[in-house]
Design a protein around this nucleic acid. Structure first.
Lengths: 206, 206
DNA sequence: CGGTATCCTTTGCGATACTG
DNA sequence: CAGTATCGCAAAGGATACCG
């Protein structure tokens, strides 16, 4: 066989070590990250994690499946309820990781920019957005409480943005304006542009 | 050389991946766990993580040092301020990991039982305890707010407990009583025994 | 005690090709 | 498209011995 699902254990009774027995392998938590916003297909995951080979990805998915962290559904791979329990862990890790510089030739997945969007904005007013990145779409819903983001285009959207992960990231960190991105042809807008500005412009939250 | 500090990167711009570039290697987060309650010497870490070879531990410590997660002090290795920022991450991981069964032949480190103690009790009244496990001691301080635990014996203690990690764990999960452990010779008590019972007896917190 | 050096085995994992 | 099979190597990491 190519690579039996790894099942190395730390042999440590601590629940931290037991968690790492399950998601501590290389790539595992990045697969979880990719699934945090909804189901993804194998090919989506491969594009999101270009450094991971086909075999690697299969191994990790099988391993996560065997521990009931990930399950297969008609829509592809998705987190189980247990897997969704990792969301606070992964987000906390991301908060901590912001202190480190970008690696050279860094790739940026659609999901990771959207997670950053969700974590860094606190929307003032209700609106629904359609965000298209590459050939996939997400529904972003601003209402009371935190932003809600899920895979798939929304039925109705007040505004739409079509761009790529790098440009979206530049919009979020303020290094590019919506107007500039549109002028450069790297972003296309539709609908309520004022609402889009509210969503994308850096907001100093607590 | 034996093993140059690993510096493999995911090449992913996401802060989650950057965090994993730093603490995602095997054993790294368990080293961090061990340092969460205070400085430890190399030999303490080796005893706490018997599955890790001498070389491995050196490699991980150097790697964590190079990223300013761990620093060396007269007292041994300790977390830097940046490293202390991992505490919520590691504790969240531990909370999630409780759903998985114990591995066979599981080892139990002193620190991991004490972290469990800290996380699972909400003390009713002020008291200071001296907990001795093996040849090391910790100061446990109950006051307002969460339990405080740090390495080293307290100057004054209202009560003392001398036992081993496995027995302490059994006391905490209620499978053994203080009286039984004392009778079996696996635990020795001193000082205010009522206070010890309050500390150790399972308390149903929220 | 607090590590390094050396050796050697294991295996993670990348590349490529192939299949339902 | 969604993987599996085979091959091969570089690197991870265990054992043991050694050193300031």
């Amino acid at each position: 066989m190519g690579g039996m699902p790894t099942s190395r254990s730390y042999g440590d009774a601590c629940s931290i070590a037991r968690a790492l027995d399950v998601v501590g392998e290389r790539w595992s938590l990045l697969v979880v990250r990719e699934l945090l916003l909804g189901p993804q297909r194998f090919s989506d995951l491969r594009r999101a994690l270009p450094g991971a080979s086909s075999n690697m990805l299969t191994d990790r998915l099988r391993e996560l499946e065997s521990h009931d962290v990930v399950a297969r559904s008609p829509a592809g791979y998705e987190l189980t309820e247990s897997g969704r329990g990792l969301e606070p862990v992964v987000l906390a890790l991301g908060g901590w990781g912001m202190r480190f510089p970008l690696p050279a030739d860094a790739h940026l997945s659609a999901t990771s920019v959207l997670l950053f969007l969700r974590g860094s904005r606190d929307p003032g007013s209700r609106a629904t957005y359609r965000i298209e990145l590459g050939d996939r779409a997400w529904a972003v819903t601003a209402g009371d409480g935190p932003l809600h983001i899920e895979t798939g285009a929304p039925v109705h959207a007040d505004a739409g943005l079509r761009t790529d992960p790098a440009t979206l990231n530049a919009l979020l960190d303020g290094s590019v304006t919506l107007a500039a991105a549109r002028a450069a042809g790297t972003a296309a807008l539709s609908g309520d542009e004022a609402a889009l500005k509210r969503l994308l412009e850096p907001s100093a939250s607590s």
